[in-house]
Design a protein around this nucleic acid. Structure first.
Lengths: 259, 259
DNA sequence: AGAATAGTGTCTTTTAGACAATATAGG
DNA sequence: CCTATATTGTCTAAAAGACACTATTCT
């Protein structure tokens, strides 16, 4: 991991290897037991937090760059990243916490103010949603910390990264009405209460369980199994699984789920 | 106009003034009398057509760049441009029709293969919709032609510009279900048959006129006037206008219009 | 009067939304 | 038997969708 990041280190490779004036930022949402969180990093020596982001190699597509960056910077793999918006303002990267001094200290290199990293970068942003209890995010070489933050408790962020998170959340919620989610998020076999809680958490509002089940089942996207899940006490709920064909079709062409 | 473009000419100013590896492309849809068209340019000496696009100055936001570029390259002003997607693949700009020779000929300058213009550019794309009968698009200094093309008769396009048009059209159609359109497109006072035709044209399908009117009026976004429009023969339809407050609110927070 | 287009109403089916009692498994 | 949770049905209101006749204006 660390080797990977050093091997691809923009501070070392610089503008020979990477595109200039464009960058990638990933908003990685994590869900677990009715909690929606977002994965953030804190560079050593800086006081603010950062989205896991990076630069695009001259040889790769932007979507591939987003995946590589997510892996290198957090250790998370096989994320289903969706591009949602690009951000570009001349002063995006001007932040009192991000200076040649802080960056020099962080990297143990001599970074000066005309370094390309301080230039105006247009950031192409992606978001994804994953199960955060199973994954163990690892910060990279430069990150002092890499951790999940509750969506309502975002710490002080560098640059315009708070805005980017807000926009990503908007996109995620809009997405929910047109496309299926949950495949990479719930266990292969899951219960109705589980997927119900997932939707409630993302939308941050209550959904009538009777109406929710009716609608979701009517889309044909989930199939009831004969098995039940045995949880600690009381009644064991039936298990369901996604119908892969319907799911794939809905991902490509959209679906109507008015919840 | 020509002076403006020369003043801002990327071929002359180059990487000192503009961001590298990022560009803007605008998909300008035009509507008039049941026809949906898109504005394309053909550079002198090239055999393929191009979206009006350009580069971002180091001092401007991407949205401002999109507006400036639209104006410089087509003469169109006050367009309501919406960012819809960014495109980035290493070989995006590799096209047998786009070579140092063709560009040299086009610009009367000596452009060689290592010029920054041939590098991998991530294109941030915007689209807009305008009335094409009122506007007289002017090509810029480098464009031999600048003209409207029917949405189903797109000519041979340079680079990935055909894909960009396809994606823009998808976005426009999706947009139609969530946001109002027409304010910059129809005359201030318009008739029900006119706005009906507009929606039918964009969606490329028939909409029952009775149901369409009912739904549109129920949203409160249009108001009936007492005047009628007199068109050549037969019955004169009533005029309507948009309710500016409702329209603005719907633009910001979305609306439900299931048509 | 006739032709062409604008404008509008009703019925049926589907969907949304509100609402709570019953069934079941584990203790 | 008790408790906690899963599951499911009905009613009403609203909306969607199918459908065609009447009104008006101009010629």
């Amino acid at each position: 991991m660390e080797q990977d990041y050093l091997k691809n280190n923009p501070l070392i490779l610089g503008e020979k290897e990477f595109l200039q004036n464009v960058s990638i930022d990933n908003v990685i949402f994590g869900y677990h037991e009715k909690e929606l969180k977002v994965l953030l990093q804190k560079p050593q020596g800086l006081s603010k937090w950062l989205l896991p982001g990076g630069y695009i190699k001259k040889t790769e597509e932007i979507s591939a760059a987003a995946e590589r960056i997510a892996k290198e910077r957090t250790g998370l793999d096989n994320l289903f990243l969706l591009q949602f918006k690009s951000f570009g303002k001349p002063d995006r990267l001007q932040d009192p916490a991000f200076t040649p001094e802080s960056l020099s200290k962080l990297s143990n290199m001599n970074i000066n103010a005309v370094n390309w990293l301080f230039e105006y970068h247009v950031s192409v942003c992606f978001y994804t949603l994953t199960e955060f209890s199973k994954v163990n995010p690892k910060g990279d070489f430069y990150s002092e910390q890499c951790s999940w933050w509750g969506i309502n408790e975002i710490p002080d962020m560098l640059f315009d990264h708070r805005l980017i998170i807000t926009e990503a959340l908007k996109s995620l919620r809009l997405h929910l009405y047109h496309y299926p989610i949950g495949l990479n998020l719930l266990p292969k076999k899951f219960t109705l209460p589980e997927i119900h809680a997932l939707y409630e958490t993302i939308l941050d509002r209550e959904l009538d369980s009777r109406n929710f089940s009716k609608k979701l089942i009517k889309t044909g996207i989930i199939k009831k199994l004969t098995e039940k899940k045995s949880i600690g006490a009381h009644r064991s709920p039936f298990l369901y699984k996604f119908d892969n064909n319907v799911y794939k079709e809905a991902l490509e062409n959209g679906m109507a789920l008015i919840i």
